[in-house]
Amino acid sequence: MAYSYKPHYFEEFEVGQTFQSPGRTITETDVVMHSAMTSDWNELHTNSEHAEERGFGERIVHGPMTFVQTIGMVMRIGILERTAFAFLGMNYMDLPNPVYIGDTVSVDIEVAETKSLESRDDVGLVIFETEMTTQEDTVVFQGDMKFFVLSSENTES
């Protein structure tokens, strides 16, 4: 399977298209950096004994970090390189299972909707159904990511 894709303009996206990111192993450093950046030092992420007592068996990755890693991996796919105009949010986001330090995660996305805008001719709306899974195919993130994507009809050569 190819993991590197060329940038896509709005007109190049079609409902049903799928893309996959390369895998990435979540490290101790990732968790420490996220904790430091957000000031979220919750013991589920930073205290092995506490996480074990809570039934997780070991420390887990922050839920918001799972989202941040997902959107980073969507961008790493390459289809939105220099064509993403704005991330507009999500209608839903689910974190059905925890990510653990040492898990290798990857992201699959599918174009769920494309919509031309009457109010703008420089961008179009693209909605991606997004799913992150671990090396064991455990789903750890699901959501619909909405982007304004540049139109090829209005780019400078």
Rank of each mutant, 00 (worst) to 15 (best):
Y5R: 09
Y5K: 08
K6M: 09
K6I: 06
Y9D: 02
E11T: 15
F13R: 01
E14D: 12
E14T: 14
E14Q: 15
E14L: 11
V15K: 15
T18K: 13
T18F: 11
F19R: 02
F19D: 02
Q20V: 06
Q20T: 05
S21T: 04
R24C: 00
T25M: 10
I26Q: 00
I26C: 03
I26K: 01
T27C: 02
E28F: 06
E28N: 14
T29I: 15
D30M: 01
D30I: 02
H34L: 09
H34V: 08
H34F: 15
A36T: 09
A36E: 09
M37S: 14
S39W: 05
D40T: 11
E43C: 11
E43N: 11
E43Q: 14
L44Y: 03
H45Y: 04
T46H: 12
T46K: 07
S48A: 13
E49S: 13
H50P: 05
E52A: 15
E53M: 12
G55Q: 07
F56I: 09
G57C: 05
G57L: 05
G57I: 04
E58M: 12
E58Q: 15
E58K: 15
E58S: 15
E58W: 09
I60C: 01
V61M: 01
H62E: 05
G63K: 03
G63V: 11
P64Y: 03
P64A: 05
M65G: 02
M65L: 11
M65P: 01
F67M: 08
F67N: 10
Q69T: 06
Q69A: 07
T70N: 02
I71Y: 00
I71R: 00
M73S: 02
M73D: 01
V74F: 04
V74H: 01
V74L: 13
M75F: 11
R76N: 13
I79C: 00
I79N: 00
E81S: 13
R82E: 09
R82T: 12
T83M: 04
T83Y: 02
A84P: 06
A84D: 07
A84I: 07
F85D: 10
F85N: 15
A86R: 10
A86E: 05
F87D: 03
L88A: 12
G89P: 00
M90G: 04
N91R: 12
N91E: 10
P96C: 13
P96T: 13
N97I: 06
P98W: 07
P98N: 12
P98E: 07
P98Q: 08
V99G: 00
